[in-house]
Simulated scan of single mutants.
Amino acid sequence: MFEVKATRGEGGEIELGTSEVAAAQRYAGSDRWRILVVTSVLDPDAVRVRVLPNPFGPRGRGRYREEGGALRFSYRV
């Protein structure tokens, strides 16, 4: 399962809604739930798709930082 997020720029921050957080937490012990971030979505020459791990899973640890609450995360690639 993938949660898809898009940004106008190069990315670096996403928000997860309540149902998205619940799904991420439900699948935290597996690699079944991940995030696809489409960056520079308005610029066809610069658009990129990044696959990020579940922020609540083992591969997501240390990769995200809560920004302004539990539903907004910054990430590093």
Rank of each mutant, 00 (worst) to 15 (best):
F2M: 12
E3H: 10
E3N: 10
E3S: 04
V4N: 03
V4A: 14
V4L: 15
A6N: 05
T7Y: 09
T7A: 12
T7I: 08
T7C: 05
E10G: 14
G11H: 08
E13F: 09
E13H: 08
I14N: 00
L16T: 05
L16K: 01
G17S: 15
S19P: 05
S19G: 10
S19I: 03
V21N: 00
A22Y: 01
A24Q: 01
Q25S: 08
R26G: 03
R26H: 03
G29A: 04
S30Q: 13
D31F: 11
D31C: 09
R32T: 06
R32Y: 04
R32G: 04
W33M: 15
R34T: 11
L36D: 05
V37L: 15
V37R: 02
T39I: 08
T39L: 10
T39E: 01
V41N: 11
P44S: 13
P44T: 06
P44H: 10
D45M: 12
D45T: 14
D45N: 14
A46M: 09
A46W: 07
V49K: 09
V51G: 11
V51K: 12
L52N: 02
L52F: 08
N54L: 14
P55Q: 04
F56Q: 00
F56H: 13
F56V: 01
G57W: 03
P58R: 07
R59L: 15
G60L: 01
G60N: 03
G60S: 05
R61I: 08
R63S: 01
R63I: 02
R63G: 02
R65W: 03
E67V: 14
E67I: 10
E67Y: 05
E67N: 10
G69A: 07
G69D: 06
G69N: 07
G69R: 08
R72T: 07
V77E: 14
V77K: 11
